Amino acid sequence: MSYRATHSGAALNSFRILEIVARLGTGTTAKEITDTLQMPQTTVYRTLNSLVADEYLVRTSDLRGFALGHALSGLITAATPPTVPTTARNVIEKFRSGKRFAVHLIMFRNASLRIADEDPDYRIHSVYEMLRYPHSSAAGKLMLAELADSAPPFPNGPLMQLTQHTITDRGQLEQQLAEIRLKGHASEINELEQGSASLAFPVGLPNGPAGAALCLSSPAERFAHICEYTEAAREMTSRLAPFLF
């Protein structure tokens, strides 16, 4: 049997066992897993030991069963859509009313962007690019500026160039992140998508890190127009924060 086949089978066994523990709940025993999956006992125990060692599973206090572990929290968080309370949605909707540009709420989770409340009248065109390449969007740069003091702000390797205006020089990007921390908001013009522009304002507790961004987006030629709403957007984020955090 090849290395790939062996490890593919081990990964599948792990996923199947995690699924059973999630379904049966805290205290699921090795026997229950063996009986449910009709899997050899030796395979079950070997896989369980590996999952416990990697903290995907933990043993219950009586050592008789298993429960989902801490290492799964990141996966669960990534798979769960951000929750935006109705009160927060109402605040955002009121701010959107009468505006001729997009207003989006983007959450920061585990050093990644998540779309929490997308403007229904002005959809985000480059969703994949925004989520995958944070250095190219205003919301992403705001998040990177927040992360810079506690973690590497962007991964190793070349920065993807989405348009001719996308910043791909790390030194230039680091300088811009420093400016964002001073100004308290981020911007981009034609960097994520040719012909578009946006501003991003941090949403978080007073004197605390931002956990989200309020984004104003428009065609690039109307960027000056959305800049006129800078103070209104800042005021709105302070009203919005208590409902989110």
Rank of each mutant, 00 (worst) to 15 (best):
S2M: 15
Y3D: 13
A10Y: 10
N13G: 07
F15K: 13
I17V: 15
L18K: 11
E19A: 13
E19L: 08
A22M: 04
A22V: 01
G25S: 12
T26G: 03
A30S: 06
K31Q: 12
E32F: 03
I33W: 08
D35Y: 00
T36Q: 00
T36H: 10
Q38N: 08
Q38P: 02
P40H: 09
P40K: 09
Q41C: 03
V44W: 03
V44L: 02
L48Q: 04
L48T: 02
N49A: 14
S50F: 11
S50K: 00
V58P: 00
T60Q: 06
S61R: 05
R64Q: 10
R64N: 06
G65I: 12
F66Y: 15
F66W: 14
G69V: 15
A71S: 08
A71G: 05
L72E: 14
S73R: 09
A78R: 08
T83K: 07
P85K: 04
P85A: 02
N90T: 12
N90Y: 10
E93G: 14
F95D: 07
F95L: 12
R96T: 15
R96C: 05
G98Q: 05
G98P: 12
R114D: 02
P120N: 11
I124F: 09
I124P: 03
H125M: 10
H125G: 01
S126G: 00
S126L: 03
Y128A: 09
Y128N: 12
Y128D: 15
E129F: 11
E129Q: 15
M130V: 02
L131T: 11
P134W: 02
H135T: 01
S136P: 02
S136I: 05
S137A: 04
G140P: 06
G140I: 09
M143R: 03
A145N: 01
E146H: 03
A148P: 00
D149I: 03
D149K: 10
D149A: 13
D149W: 04
P153Q: 03
P155E: 14
L159T: 01
M160S: 08
Q164H: 11
T166P: 11
I167Y: 05
T168C: 07
T168W: 00
G171Y: 08
Q176R: 09
E179M: 09
E179R: 15
H185G: 14
S187L: 09
L199P: 04
A200W: 05
G204F: 02
L205I: 00
P206V: 05
P209K: 06
A210W: 11
A213M: 06
C215W: 14
L216D: 04
S217F: 02
A220T: 01
E221V: 13
R222T: 10
R222G: 14
F223E: 09
F223R: 07
C227A: 07
E228D: 14
Y229F: 06
E231C: 07
E235P: 01
M236W: 07
S238T: 15
A241L: 04
A241E: 04
A241S: 13
P242R: 09
F243C: 13
F245P: 10
